[in-house]
Simulated assay, not measured.
Amino acid sequence: MNIQKKINNIQFIGSSEKKGDFYLVKGKITGTLEVECVKCLNTFERKVDEEVKYKIVKPPYHGFDDEYDIIEQEKFDLEKILKSEIESLKLDYNICEKCKNKEFNKEF
């Protein structure tokens, strides 16, 4: 089944397939996100363009998958997954253009 979900400036386009008691979700997350630079703490817009693969399973899950990120949910909720992905991107090591080439005090 083709699926599309948008939250603010971030969009997911992909597909889901039910396989027994779990779902396989493949797609792409695109858009722009306001993030904070880890060096100067100023906010800036980060372009997002990521391929994602999720295996949605009911908890507790004790397996492993090399190809898919495992997400435990009682009920398949793409909006919750996308919001979590957005928060993860905000907490990433984001560096603005001004700080990319600056030398900062380094401890040796």
Score class of each variant (00 low, 15 high):
Val38Lys: 07
Lys102Cys: 12
Cys37Gln: 07
Lys6Tyr: 15
Thr43Asn: 06
Lys106Phe: 11
Cys40Gln: 10
Val48Asp: 06
Phe44Ile: 08
Gly27Tyr: 01
Leu82Asp: 12
Ile10Lys: 03
Lys98Trp: 02
Asn94Thr: 02
Tyr93Thr: 08
Lys19Thr: 12
Asp69Val: 03
Tyr23Phe: 12
Ile29Asn: 04
Asn8Thr: 01
Glu17Trp: 15
Ser88Cys: 05
Ile29Ser: 04
Lys98Gln: 00
Asn9His: 10
Cys40Thr: 00
Glu74Val: 03
Ile81Glu: 11
Ile3Phe: 15
Glu74Arg: 04
Lys28Trp: 12
Glu51Met: 11
Ser15Cys: 14
His62Val: 06
Gly27His: 14
Val38Gln: 09
Asp21Ile: 03
Lys53Cys: 10
Glu72Leu: 09
Phe22Pro: 01
Asp21Cys: 08
Cys40Leu: 08
Lys100Glu: 02
Asp66Lys: 12
Ile81Val: 11
Val35Phe: 05
Ile70Met: 09
Ser84Trp: 11
Ser84Pro: 09
Ile86His: 01
Pro59Gly: 00
Glu51Arg: 12
Thr30Asn: 04
Val25Gln: 00
Ile95Ala: 01
Gln4Pro: 10
Tyr93Cys: 03
Tyr54Leu: 02
Ser15Asn: 14
Gly63Thr: 03
Glu85Gly: 04
Lys98Val: 07
Thr32Glu: 15
Lys83Cys: 05
Glu17Lys: 15
Lys102Ala: 04
Phe64Ala: 14
Glu36Asp: 01
Ile70Asn: 13
Lys26Ala: 13
Gly20Met: 11
Asn105Lys: 14
Gly14Lys: 04
Glu97Ile: 06
Phe22Cys: 02
Met1Ala: 05
Asp66Ala: 13
Glu72Gln: 12
Asp66Gln: 06
Lys19Gln: 13
Gln4Lys: 09
Val57Ile: 07
Lys58Gly: 03
